[in-house]
């Protein structure tokens, strides 16, 4: 295939992926009344500051967007950090210890691979409500930690490490925890960072679970709240502010993925395969 044809095809594809974001950006610069009339202009307007300010400080029938962004950030960071800690500890236990019943422990953790959150959402909801965790950050984060992908990734990473490491550590008199802290943890840094990027995006973009478990507007995540702003999609909505909010909602994970592209691709491929 000719290079110019490949270039043309790729340009069209890249544009089609970007186009809806560009139009949302355009919407965020224009007065909501004009958009609501169905007469949005093809050129940027002068309402960016007003729309952005309105979204950030007032929201649109929701909590202010700064608060929503904070909720999403805490949730995503909590899911990433929590899963990393759980996975590091359990992978360490599974790889470096001779214990009875290890097979059962591994099978129990491994089982969670079978069920995405969406499948067990209704029964999990009952359990979380009974525990009094609805409408809390703990209720948002904890159920999403029940997954095996991080454990599998780190288990594989630890298995691939040379055995001389642990032999040398033991000769030096290091116990398991010293080995974990001083040798294993520093070596795991890149794998952990790669996993962290993937988990942050996963946490930020959660939808069904936050939609169910949160009933107080000030605890909403930004992804759920932007959909609530649109409601039934009536023309009277404050479209300029909503599009400003939508852009703010999509930027953090997109920036993380683009800024850490190498790390992200590596983490994604080893976490999911």
């Amino acid at each position: 295939m000719k290079r110019s044809l490949a270039f043309l095809t790729l340009s069209v594809a890249a544009f089609l992926l970007l186009a809806p974001v560009l139009v949302a950006l355009l919407g965020a610069t224009q007065p909501s009344e004009v958009i609501a009339r169905g007469s949005m202009a093809w050129l940027p307007g002068g309402e960016t500051a007003r729309n952005l300010g309105e979204a950030l400080t007032q929201g649109a029938g929701t909590a202010p967007v700064w608060r929503l962004l904070l909720n999403s950030a805490v949730m995503a960071a909590g899911i990433a950090a929590g899963k990393i800690v759980l996975s590091l500890l359990s992978a360490f236990a599974l790889v470096y210890f001779r214990v009875r019943g290890r097979g059962i422990a591994f099978a129990l953790i491994f089982l969670t691979l079978l069920l995405p959150v969406e499948v067990r959402i209704v029964p999990t909801y009952d359990v979380v409500v009974k525990m009094g965790l609805s409408d809390s950050m703990g209720g948002l984060i904890l159920p999403l930690l029940a997954s095996a992908t991080g454990t599998l990734l780190l288990r594989q990473f630890m298995r691939d490490l040379p055995r001389e490491l642990v032999d040398a550590a033991r000769i030096d008199g290091a116990g398991p925890l010293a080995f974990f802290w001083h040798i294993l943890l520093p070596l795991s840094r890149t794998s952990v960072a790669a996993l962290g990027v993937v988990l942050f995006v996963y946490g930020w973009n959660q939808y069904l679970w936050p939609l169910l478990i949160v009933t107080r507007a000030e605890l909403d995540t930004v992804i759920v709240a932007v959909v609530k702003m649109i409601g039934t999609g009536e023309a009277m909505s404050d479209w300029g502010a909503i599009m400003a909010a939508a852009i703010l909602a999509l930027l953090p994970p997109v920036i993380v993925v683009l800024a850490l592209q190498r790390l992200f691709v590596r983490g994604l491929i080893s976490a999911e395969k």
Partner: peptide, 24 residues
């Protein structure tokens, strides 16, 4: 460059994708 241009929608939530296209 192409990799970046074709990779970023991974980071988009399906619900937000719905909002963007709805607006269009």
């Amino acid at each position: 460059v192409w990799q970046a241009l074709l990779t970023w929608p991974y980071a988009l939530a399906p619900a937000t994708a719905g909002v963007l296209w709805l607006f269009l």
